[in-house]
Simulated scan of single mutants.
Amino acid sequence: MALAAGDRAPLVALSDQNGEGRRSDQLAGKALVLFFYPKDDTPGCTAEACAFRDSYADLQSLGAEVWGVSGDDQASHQRFASRHDLPFPLLVDQGNALRKAFGVPNVLGLLPGRVTYVIDREGVIRHVFNNLLDGAAHRNEARAALQRLAL
């Protein structure tokens, strides 16, 4: 079952593209924009990741960290991050355990879905945006949700 706004987010504890362990319980009071995407270096995923890259400083100024998640391996994430100068971690979710914990749906039963979660400082999901086709819209939704949290 998919998690929704108001639900407590599961612990995020995965390694990133550089092999560094990332844990959501070690964010030191920051919000988290966690975006699940289907696959490295595909057109929609590249547009989404680059949109987050282009707004990274803005999202950080709103008190958030940004982490991307897909089932691709560490080497794929390294290439993707390097090729597009991504300043945020890409978490390796091989086996899709984290994707399943959040209940991110597959599209047509085949394609991994594209869903972004905005998680507040207390670990509560405050916004969920599910849209496979418009990757760049995920950044806009995350920014708007963070602005609402700052009020």
Rank of each mutant, 00 (worst) to 15 (best):
D73H: 14
A101S: 13
Q94D: 11
A101H: 08
C50E: 14
D58A: 15
R121Y: 09
L86S: 05
A81L: 06
G103C: 02
G103E: 01
N106T: 13
F88H: 10
A136Q: 10
N130E: 07
D73P: 13
W67N: 00
D58R: 14
V115H: 00
P112I: 04
D54Y: 10
V69E: 04
F129K: 03
G109Y: 07
Q94G: 13
R114L: 04
P112W: 06
A51W: 00
R99V: 03
G71C: 07
F88D: 03
D72M: 12
L110P: 00
R114D: 02
V104N: 09
E65R: 03
Y117C: 06
D85S: 12
F102I: 12
V115S: 03
D72H: 08
I119H: 02
N131K: 14
A57I: 03
N106D: 15
E122I: 01
R83T: 10
R139P: 06
V118L: 00
L86N: 02
Q94Y: 13
A97W: 07
H127P: 04
L132P: 07
F102E: 11
R121G: 08
V104R: 05
N106H: 15
R79W: 13
Y56P: 00
D72S: 14
C50D: 10
R121E: 13
S70V: 11
L62K: 10
A51S: 12
L91D: 06
D120P: 14
V107H: 04
Y56R: 01
R53D: 13
R126T: 00
R114A: 02
Y117W: 02
G123Q: 02
V118H: 00
D134E: 11
A51R: 01
D134P: 01
S61P: 08
V92Q: 10
R114W: 02
S70W: 08
D85K: 15
H77M: 13
A97Q: 11
V128Q: 05
S61F: 05
R126E: 03
A57L: 08
A64P: 10
L86E: 07
L91T: 05
L86C: 07
G135V: 03
L133T: 14
H127S: 12
G71D: 05
N131G: 08
H84Q: 09
D120Y: 07
A136L: 04
F129V: 01
V107E: 09
S55H: 15
W67H: 04
I125R: 03
N131I: 11
R121S: 12
G71H: 09
P87W: 09
K100H: 09
H84Y: 14
D73I: 09
E65S: 07
D73L: 15
T116E: 12
Q94V: 15
R139S: 05
N96E: 13
L86Q: 08
G63M: 01
E65C: 02
R139M: 10
D85G: 15
D58I: 11
A101N: 10
S55A: 15
N106W: 14
D73Q: 11
V107D: 06
F129I: 00
P89H: 11
R126K: 08
G113H: 06
Q78M: 15
D120L: 14
L59R: 03
V69G: 03
G71P: 08
F52I: 01
F80K: 06
R83W: 14
A51P: 01
I125P: 03
I119W: 00
S61V: 07
G68H: 14
G113S: 05
A81Q: 03
S70Y: 10
V92D: 05
R121T: 13
A101W: 09
G68I: 11
V66Y: 06
G103F: 05
V104L: 11
F102H: 10
C50P: 07
